[in-house]
Design a protein around this nucleic acid. Structure first.
Lengths: 150, 150
DNA sequence: TTCTCTGCAAACGCTTTGCACGGAT
DNA sequence: ATCCGTGCAAAGCGTTTGCAGAGAA
């Protein structure tokens, strides 16, 4: 998928099939959620969101589906928080920003050659993960507002 | 601690005191282990290593000690593997390399300005974490040897 | 029928919490 | 006596596994 390209919800079925994944109802809904939300959801977040529409949904299915997606290179797991897995729809290489205040994870598009290196000091590189931590724009602004009020 | 500077084991007590941490026997031993080993150990690794010398040692103490050290900015937790915490003695900013084969974590010293940015697209940056994943030098060489043999 | 997907329940493993003992001041 | 470090035991919580029923081919 090239930059700027969008995938219509109707194309989800074709996307799964092109990756060799049978497009079951649950899988389509989980993929749809990950693609529409850019929030790098946890299993629990996905579960809570989809549970309303699919009351029989099980977390096991979400775990199964996401590890299948990961194996088929449709999503990738983001290791930012140490206590839970977060998932990211596979777009162009990018970094992440974790807000320590609101726990939101933002995509950060960098122009760094680090993201594209094949070797580093003799080790063969398959993946490059970059993430920043701090206070996000929104929380900074909110903090500013609170100061003015008090 | 500046680059190139080394800390003698005898100086551990002073290091803890300078950070406002009472230098108990367990704390000294845990700090010593983290500083001597550059292997980014998990709690279990530390426990197994120190258990021989301190049979009464409890994992709770290691958890307590490490979170205290982290609060006092003596170590920092490395979020690379999602199923366990790894700890890193706080040196100059550096990146990590995780070998997917042997699970070893290597320090990588980079000359990237990413490590020193204060802001990124409006978010205030406190920390920058960079890690690569792949197959390390050693495992690559071993794989080569195996090929020759077979 | 056969194979795969789904999902309940239990197991698992790392981490945290509650609490009491004991040493230091 | 008080404070704080230590460590056992239990709880907590995200994830994985075992297995059986449902559904597709």
């Amino acid at each position: 998928m090239k930059e700027g390209e969008t995938i219509s919800i109707g194309g989800l079925k074709e996307l799964l099939e092109s990756k060799g994944v049978k497009p079951s109802y649950q899988r389509l809904r989980i993929l749809e959620y990950i693609m529409k939300k850019n929030t790098h959801p946890s299993v629990d977040t996905i579960y809570k969101a989809l549970y309303k529409k699919i009351p029989t949904l099980s977390k096991t299915t979400i775990y199964n589906t996401l590890s299948l997606f990961e194996k088929k290179r449709i999503v990738r797991s983001v290791t930012i928080l140490d206590n839970e897995l977060r998932y990211d729809f596979l777009k162009d290489p990018h970094a992440h920003f974790l807000c320590l205040e609101c726990k939101e994870v933002y995509d950060i598009y960098l122009d760094s050659d680090l993201l594209y290196r094949d070797f580093i000091v003799g080790h063969r590189v398959n993946e490059c993960h970059i993430h920043f931590r701090g206070i996000c724009k929104n929380c900074l602004e909110n903090a500013g507002r609170l100061e003015k009020i008090s």
